[in-house]
Simulated assay, not measured.
Amino acid sequence: MAGMMMLERSVGTACLPGMSAAASPAATTGNTLMVPRCTIRVEKCAGGAKLHCVCDDELACATLQNLCKSLCDGLCSVNCLMNGICVCQCNFAMCHCTCECTPDGVCITCCSGDEACCQMVQACCECLAQCLAAGCNCCVCFSGTPVCCGCC
């Protein structure tokens, strides 16, 4: 369980509209939601951005990879929280996101062939990098369902 993070449902739902316990495949207990803990790194790439989610724990890594495999066809978003309050939410609705398993987690690539959309994706990447550098806890979601949480 060292590789898992507890989120209070009331805090998480403030940034995750439409999320409910019934919609979440992750383990739930009372007013909390268990998601894999990871280290998140973002980088610009040709046509968009990449999110690298890396887990230290084997169980957390397997959980993250399974969640991503089952949910990756939905809208990808990242919610950044500082002191439990949502300070930023980036939705990658303007591009196509794919998820690739890595030996220690996943790499989510969000790209667009449209130049204006690519610029928006890369601006989101810069914003997320600033939030992570400032110490925000970020939660990566597919279709509003968290798949992992962590910081840089």
Rank of each mutant, 00 (worst) to 15 (best):
D57Y: 03
T109F: 01
Q122I: 06
C101Y: 02
V35L: 05
S77L: 00
V54M: 09
R41W: 00
S112K: 02
N83E: 13
G144P: 03
N137A: 12
C88S: 15
G105K: 01
P36F: 03
E126N: 13
N91T: 11
M120N: 05
N83V: 08
G135Y: 03
G12M: 09
A21Q: 14
C68T: 11
A93R: 07
C111G: 06
D56L: 05
G3N: 03
S20G: 10
D104K: 10
C151A: 15
R9T: 14
G3F: 01
V147Y: 04
S24D: 14
C72H: 13
A134R: 06
C141S: 09
E43T: 11
A27G: 01
C152N: 13
G12F: 05
C80N: 05
M94Q: 13
A46K: 05
K69W: 06
P17G: 09
N91I: 08
A133Y: 03
S112E: 04
T98F: 02
N66Y: 05
T145K: 15
A93N: 10
G18E: 05
C141G: 06
G113Y: 06
E115R: 15
A129H: 06
C125K: 00
C88E: 10
F92C: 03
C68D: 09
V140D: 00
E115S: 15
G74N: 11
C141Y: 01
L75K: 03
C127M: 15
M82Y: 11
Q122V: 02
M1V: 13
A60E: 02
T39R: 12
C107G: 06
L33Y: 08
C90R: 03
S112D: 09
P103R: 05
D57S: 04
G113Q: 08
D104E: 11
A93C: 09
E100F: 04
V140K: 00
T98M: 08
C118D: 11
V35R: 07
T39M: 07
